[in-house]
């Protein structure tokens, strides 16, 4: 296959029909596009390691990985939502509420003095309760979006406020601390030489990659985001798929909440504020289109790592936190501009 054919690949109608995909497209530019975020990440690491000798150490590596594990959990859910051309602004608040409920149930259980009743919870019990809370809130998002046609931006904005309010009500505005060593293991422990949060986020990424590539649901998510009308005519139950996706996003936010609470040994009522923005940033830097239908989980993981490395590097280089925000914003813009330029040239 000549390079000329590759450049004009979209004019496939003039090509003779061949059924086998070309094994190698014979041009480096395509690989440059495909791995652009990896390349950017590599260059970023290179620059930081030249400027700081603390960066390229094993300890710092695990440190970065542990820091981004929460964002990865949320971003994976966000990717699924964005692939359906939706958005979920509520994840930060959902994270806080789930963390608070997990911590509260672990520490105090449920007391009903009028019934003379006390329910205590095991570690597994509180984790499941936290997950359930997040999934329910996500399902609620999906329900208002599909049943009442509330735009996702508005529906999840409402739940952002509601969940934050519920967190304040439940915690009465104070942190719930002192949760015990067993619970702390989730956020701070090590397993086989790898931090537990990294295990958790890694497994979530694996499952999500599997979901998007190998299951019907994953296929439907891409189809709905790509062309909802065609998906509906193909007999796909749009409401069911969307609700499921928001429920997953809620559940993953809950996992993030449990990790955060465990790591701090404390459920903070104002945990997770603006986490949704970090997640959206990871999704966008990872090349997922906000108009849906195009993108991938692994892209988002790269996006999250880029943000994490950038944060870490800027701290190591003693850049002021104010400048850190400016730099982060510029990186997001740059990533999207490059992505747009690429999709136009295709």
């Amino acid at each position: 296959m000549s390079p000329k054919v590759f450049v004009k690949e979209e004019k496939a109608q003039v090509q003779p029909p061949t059924l086998k995909a070309p094994a190698f497209s014979g041009s480096y530019s395509r690989y440059l596009v495909k791995f652009q975020s990896l390349i950017a990440l590599f260059i970023l690491c290179l620059i930081i390691s030249l400027l700081s000798d603390k960066f390229l150490t094993v300890a710092n590596g695990w440190n970065v990985m542990r820091q981004i594990s929460v964002n990865i959990c949320i971003s994976v859910g966000m990717t699924l939502v964005v692939l359906t051309a939706g958005i979920d602004l509520s994840v930060g608040s959902v994270l806080a509420l789930c963390g608070a409920i997990t911590a509260g149930l672990l520490k105090f259980g449920i007391e009903l003095p009028s019934q003379d009743l006390f329910i205590g919870f095991t570690l597994l019990g509180v984790v499941l309760a936290g997950l359930l809370t997040g999934t329910l809130l996500g399902t609620f998002n999906g329900w208002t979006i599909t049943r009442f046609k509330v735009p996702p931006f508005v529906a999840t904005l409402a739940v952002l406020t509601i969940a934050r309010g519920l967190t304040m009500l439940y915690t009465k505005g104070f942190p719930i601390s002192g949760l015990g060593a067993d619970f702390a293991y989730i956020g701070t422990g090590w397993l086989l030489g790898i931090p537990v949060p990294v295990w958790i986020s890694g497994i979530i990424v694996g499952l999500a990659v599997f979901l998007t590539n190998k299951t019907r649901l994953g296929r439907y998510i891409y189809a709905i985001g790509g062309n909802e009308s065609a998906a509906r005519l193909s007999g796909i139950n749009i409401s069911k798929v969307k609700t499921t996706v928001y429920a997953i996003a809620g559940g993953l936010a809950a996992i993030g909440g449990i990790i955060v609470t465990s790591r701090l040994d404390s459920a903070q009522p104002n945990a997770g504020i603006s986490y949704e923005l970090d997640a959206i940033a990871a999704v966008v830097i990872g090349g997922t289109s906000l108009s849906g239908g195009r993108g991938s989980i692994l892209g988002t993981v790269q996006g999250a790592i880029i943000i994490g490395v950038l944060n870490n590097g800027l701290v190591l280089l003693n850049v002021s936190p104010f400048w850190q925000q400016v730099v982060k914003g510029m990186v997001i813009l740059l990533a999207v501009i490059i992505d747009k330029a690429n999709s136009k040239s295709e």
């Binding site: 190998k214 062309n227 065609a230 239908g293």
Partner: peptide, 28 residues
């Protein structure tokens, strides 16, 4: 507008209506 998901490939579009038949134990 209504027939195709233009951004997806030919195979995915053709298979979109019959995915349940193309699974083994829930895996495509």
């Amino acid at each position: 507008k209504d027939g195709l998901v233009l951004g997806l490939d030919v195979q995915t579009n053709i298979c979109l209506t019959t995915l349940p038949d193309l699974e083994d134990a829930g895996i495509l």
